[in-house]
Design a binder for these strands. Structure first.
Lengths: 194, 194
DNA sequence: AGCAATACTTGTCATTTGGCAAGTGCATCA
DNA sequence: TGATGCACTTGCCAAATGACAAGTATTGCT
């Protein structure tokens, strides 16, 4: 049996779930490892696994009509990785999820998750809370796309999540910020010259 | 007692709630009218009312650092109007909501809604379903902002929701599409000349 | 009817951005 | 070690966009 204390800690973090229940829930997750560059989810597939990322980095991306890959999410250790639209609505995903580094994670299927939601009201409340948090952060990201310049979004990302820049290629960060890699490079150059 | 059949129909539409329960739930909503230009929610306030819009049009908007109003949502009859981040996380809203036309709506407070969620599992499931739908459409909108041109977003809006153009000023639609009103005007001119 | 406010368009110009191609530096691998 | 690939930057140019100001409808109001 692997050490699932990080998962238990994650479940307890909101304060909604007690340590005892968290341990019980954690037992339903199974360890899943991914090699660098492995796909966790491919466009067209159903996102059927709720994944807690314990170690490593992942990215979500979609294909633009032009064929370019557009980063839709960057996932660091301690975060949940799945495609919510596909997972909850039981529809094929329009996005891909790929490991950027070797990853250790804990996964649970949609069916098992629902079973636990049904059996454990605290966990259901936890799930609702996570969903709301995801919604809120997506709203914040959306807002930043229309109210801020790419430079401001870059600086904000640099300030709040500097580790991203040690783990994700700038090209992928650029499309996450809504610009091309050359534009991001220009933004960085300008910031160097104060 | 006003006719709340549209509200009941809305509650039944997902198939999760029976007509009987829907009628019971609908009784907890109270009718709320808004004059044209009235504010339903102001930045800094708590979004504490879950509002079903029966008649009329509303818009959500945020203030960019520049002072410009940026449209974050356009609401037509039959939709739910509230600021999810503020409502669920009990934090001051960063957005405003304003009636674009005279509006008839049905509202219920956060507390009452939670009370019903607790008492009626079907309604709780309905709420989760609505939340997921809202999440999914926000993701789709987010994706369109990075994968599509403003012209494509304009055409898509025109095709799927042509009524918007009869009810919302182009200037507000423009910022919803992520461009200025003059750029939108240019896009429209180009499309006229095939 | 006449005035004012608003909605929308248009022109001009400066700035930003993207596309493309080339160049540099670094790491990996046989 | 030499070759290959990748990450990142840079220069050049064309295209898109924004800021600003002015002009034209259109609407609403008294």
């Amino acid at each position: 049996m692997q050490d699932n204390s990080a998962l238990i800690h994650f479940l307890c973090a909101t304060g909604i779930i007690s340590a005892t229940i968290a341990a019980e829930i954690a037992q339903a997750f199974r360890p899943m490892d991914f090699a660098k560059d492995a796909f966790v989810l491919r466009e067209g597939q159903l996102s059927d696994t709720y994944l807690f990322l314990e170690q490593g980095w992942m990215r979500g991306f979609a294909l633009a009509p032009s064929g370019d890959e557009v980063t839709t999410g960057i996932f660091r250790p301690g975060q949940v990785v799945f495609e919510a639209s596909s997972f909850f609505q039981r529809q094929p995903s329009m996005e891909n999820i790929q490991a950027l580094t070797p990853c250790q994670a804990w996964g649970i299927s949609f069916a098992q998750l629902n079973h636990l939601f049904h059996a454990l009201p605290e966990f259901r409340e936890f799930g609702r809370s996570r969903l709301v948090m995801g919604f809120a952060s997506l709203k914040a990201r959306m807002l930043s796309m229309v109210t801020q310049t790419a430079e401001q979004r870059y600086l904000s990302l640099l300030q709040h999540h500097p580790e991203i820049f040690q783990n994700v290629p700038l090209k992928q960060i650029a499309s996450y910020l809504g610009v091309t890699d050359s534009s991001l490079s220009r933004i960085r150059r300008e910031l160097m010259n104060h």
